[in-house]
Design a protein around this nucleic acid. Structure first.
Length: 485
DNA sequence: GGTCACCCCACAACTAAGGA
DNA sequence: TCCTTAGTTGTGGGGTGACC
């Protein structure tokens, strides 16, 4: 029998005042067929639930005062005791209410004790028993779930509820857990099946209310930014996107949305070389594919679907999310041409390059920057500088390896970029770079490009695959201009 | 200066999870 | 049970250090 008693000070005490007759009833299914196992447990022979008061402690540790809890647990766990009302309120209670409270407290305490052991058992199996925060969260969650599940329902099973609670806590704490393996490791298959687990999982959904997803996204963005140590321009761009366009980045997982926004900031500020998308995804604890999908979907939602590789959509992202519709928080980003020219001047000054080389490099940038691959700024600058060195006949004064180092790249990459540019202009460079000295001035320093140069397209990059890109390229086999040496 | 092997990253296809 | 979305895995392009 269940009785509800209205108390003063708005205390509502809901306790089971059943007599000893009900002690034989299974708290899980209500059946009255208890059996005692050889280990000393009392279990329900219908549903297999272990009776709350049948825990035969085999540990040698001393029992607590109430004889139901090991002292070590009573000392260390604050979850296994229940108090109803304040101290003053309890003192005012009539004797029968005190008795009712005691019964109710004992029943709930027993449930919580069993849940405590169940949760500890699961965490031990998962090798997470050291994570006391998880235990705390799970005990709180168990309390919420237990009170939400209909009394007398088969879903109000301590083992299943504990399992479901731990599963939800692990997911909330971003502990990687695969449902199938989790059930294999922790579910008592003799008594329950996965279907029952899923039923309880569904029924307790409302007991674990979710916090505002947008706030979660902002929180996770901050975490990613600090983990990666992103510079201010990227932080500003991500903040602008988060402030004005957070709704465009859609995903059931807040981590995916946060990582996508940070990635958009990285791509929009051209810092992908330092912060590749995979590192953003890793720091958010998600797969890079999910991140890329989210960014792609955000662009599509704005009516500007991405048609090429995501790494080349920095301009698009900037115009969509950090541009005029964004805020002034995002630092204006210089165009690639201006950026390359600035770097050339800086390198010319620091590496003490001849004036003629710097001038030639600036001219090559103005005329043909689109022919050089733009994947990595440093390599692009290095290739333009080496082109200028060769074209201006300054190789005796400037070693290409030094140029590569000064530009922040390496010789093979720099040479690769230069060869790609030559191939795009229709003159694939076979063999050594030195052989290009005859036609590089004609190719890169002329105001008007050769007739068969068709803009920035040229052969597809796929055909220029490093390092054997030269094979298979179809281009004019002869060099058009051959000035006398 | 040039070559090569190794590693990292983006991408696509497939699989699993979770909600309706 | 179906649909959507995230995660996993394999593949190929591209970058880089070591070595000749």
């Amino acid at each position: 029998m269940v009785t509800s008693i209205n108390l003063p000070q708005n205390i509502r005490l809901r306790v089971s005042v059943s007599c000893s007759r009900e002690i034989d009833l299974c708290p899980g299914c209500g059946a009255k067929i208890p059996v005692t196992t050889p280990e000393g447990f009392t279990v329900c022979s219908k549903c297999g639930l272990e009776y709350p008061d049948s825990q035969p402690y085999v540990c040698s540790d001393a029992l607590g005062r109430d004889k139901t809890l090991l002292q070590s647990h009573a000392k260390h766990s604050r979850h296994t005791s229940t108090m109803i009302g304040s101290k003053t309120e309890r003192e005012r209670l009539a004797p029968q209410l005190k008795w009712a409270e005691r019964v109710g407290r004992m029943h709930e305490q027993e449930v919580f004790q069993r849940a405590y052991f169940e949760i500890r058992k699961v965490l031990t199996v998962l090798d997470l028993n050291e994570r006391t925060a998880l235990l705390d969260a799970a005990m709180v969650g168990f309390g919420q779930a237990y009170r939400h599940v209909t009394k007398g329902s088969r879903n109000r099973n301590v083992h299943l509820l504990a399992l479901v609670t731990v599963y939800r806590v692990l997911r909330a704490a971003r502990v990687p857990v695969v449902l199938k393996r989790y059930l294999t490791a922790c579910l008592d298959r003799d008594q329950h099946d996965a279907k029952q687990f899923m039923t309880v999982l569904r029924e307790t959904t409302f007991a674990f209310p979710r916090t505002n997803p947008d706030e979660m996204v902002l929180h996770e963005i901050s975490a990613i930014v600090s983990r990666l140590g992103l510079p201010k321009p990227v932080r500003d761009a991500a903040a602008a996107i988060a402030k004005h366009h957070v709704g465009r980045f859609q995903s059931p997982k807040t981590g995916v949305r946060a990582a996508a926004i940070v990635s958009a900031g990285v791509l929009a500020t051209g810092t992908r070389a330092q912060f590749p998308l995979v590192s953003v995804a890793r720091s958010a604890g998600i797969a890079s594919s999910a991140l890329i999908r989210c960014v792609t979907a955000a662009c599509a939602l704005c009516g500007r679907p991405i048609t090429s590789s995501i790494i080349s959509v920095g301009d698009l992202l900037r115009s969509l999310f950090v541009g005029p519709t964004g805020t002034s928080m995002a630092k204006p980003i210089a165009s690639r041409t201006a950026e390359v020219k600035t770097r050339i001047v800086e390198i010319g000054r620091t590496a003490k390059l001849p004036e003629v080389v710097v001038e030639a490099a600036l001219k090559v940038t103005d005329l043909h920057i689109d022919t050089f691959p733009d994947r990595v700024l440093f390599a692009q600058v290095g290739a333009i500088l080496s082109t200028a060195v060769i074209a201006s006949g300054s190789r005796a004064k400037c070693r290409l390896k030094v140029i590569a180092r000064s530009a922040g790249t390496n010789y093979p990459t720099m040479a690769h970029y230069l060869k790609v540019a030559c191939a795009r202009l229709g003159f694939p460079l076979e063999g050594k770079l030195a052989s290009s000295r005859f036609f590089l001035p004609e190719l890169f320093l002329r105001e008007k490009p050769p007739d068969h140069y068709e803009g920035s397209l040229g052969p597809p990059l796929r055909a220029l695959a490093h390092p054997n890109y030269i094979k298979g390229i179809e281009g004019p086999p002869t060099i058009p201009t051959h000035p006398s040496p």
